[in-house]
């Protein structure tokens, strides 16, 4: 399988002010490297403040990276949307979290779908209308919806329209930024299944961003977990849940509210969540997770661990898997 998108040591800092030592930066994305294979769904999981949305927005061109590279089919696309070619904009599309604000309330659905159709496929008039009806059919909405305004339809239907808009340019990759987190579970099920069906039908690659672990388990091929701008762990979806290695991953999985005993057994029991994610302006030294980590050692606050391969396709960024772990002693439970 071919690599469609690759991030190499990607960083995105925002300047938030200055103090005596000079400018103060918010390090939203801080050295992230990963690859997305053609046709897969890479799940990117993190809490708010983890930088997952900034990473997604940088990939689609809302921001220019501070450092590192984004390669799309081998071509460096680390620039803002203004500077990207139309051919590139056609290839990468995004679906935002809140369908309420991603669809202009003053335009009809026909007009909303018409914009990418005219820009990327040059369709106008009757041809555009036919293509828009075809898009609506793809997301199982009737043609009458062309004349409706987004404010007159339900949240799930709005998100379906937003998906249809993203697909209008016939992209090869779609970034999904929490596409179902504003929706009810019964609607969520429909959207997720539709996304999976569309992926097969149109041979799409998804970068699926979410904070919801139980959703990502059911859509992703591989899952990457992000904490304070860095990746902690990356593995195949099933392995990620069955053999989580990073203490943060275990903490997250054990915090998920579940509805069956079968799921309860999957949860790593010991790890009780504690503390909160610190501000990305003041990232803790060493491993950024160490203040909340139940398994931390003295080395953790000093040295930032490297990403290491623990099993085929399974990467972890934790000192327990680096050579320095054996030389150090566990500090044990504190606080």
């Amino acid at each position: 399988m071919a690599v469609i998108l690759e991030c190499r040591d990607l960083t995105k800092y925002f300047r938030v002010g200055r103090n005596k030592q000079g400018p103060v930066y918010l390090r939203a994305v801080d050295g992230v490297s990963f690859e997305v294979q053609e046709g897969e769904t890479l799940g990117l999981v993190g809490e708010s403040g983890s930088g997952k949305s900034t990473l997604a927005y940088t990939i689609v061109g809302m921001y220019r990276p501070t450092g590192g590279h984004i390669l799309f089919r081998g071509q460096d696309i680390g620039m803002e949307a203004d500077r990207r070619s139309m051919a590139l904009k056609k290839e990468i599309q995004i679906v935002f979290q809140d369908p309420g604000s991603s669809l202009n309330p003053r335009r009809t659905i026909g007009q909303i779908l018409g914009l990418p159709l005219v820009l990327h496929r040059g369709l106008r008039g009757a041809a555009q209308e036919e293509a828009a009806i075809e898009l609506l059919r793809k997301v199982e909405l009737p043609p009458e919806y062309l004349l409706k305004s987004p404010s007159s339809i339900g949240g799930g239907e709005k998100q379906m329209v937003a998906i249809a808009r993203a697909l209008a340019s016939e992209p090869s990759m779609v970034v999904l930024d929490e596409p179902t987190s504003a929706l009810d579970v019964s609607v969520q099920a429909k959207i997720i299944n539709k996304l999976i069906a569309l992926q097969r039908e149109m041979n799409l690659t998804y970068l699926f961003i979410t904070h919801d672990l139980s959703v990502i388990r059911n859509v992703a091929t591989r899952i990457a977990i992000m904490y304070l701008g860095r990746l902690c762990e990356l593995a195949q979806a099933a392995e990620f849940f069955e053999q989580p290695e990073h203490p943060y991953t275990r903490m997250l999985i054990s915090s998920v509210p579940v509805i069956s005993d079968e799921e309860e057994r999957l949860k790593p029991k010991k790890v009780e969540s504690r503390g909160e994610i610190p501000s990305p302006v003041n990232i803790p030294s060493g491993c950024s997770f160490h203040p909340r980590c139940p398994e931390r050692a003295s080395v953790c606050s000093k040295v930032n661990p490297e990403m290491v391969l623990v099993r085929p396709g399974h990467y972890v960024r934790c000192h327990q898997f680096t050579s320095c772990w054996s030389d150090t002693k566990k500090v044990g439970e504190i606080g």
Partner: peptide
């Protein structure tokens, strides 16, 4: 800063639009 404006920008709409 609304997402619908960002969506239009990302897909390549003109400033006038």
């Amino acid at each position: 800063n609304e997402y619908f404006v960002i969506a239009a920008e990302l897909t390549g709409a003109s400033k006038l639009h």
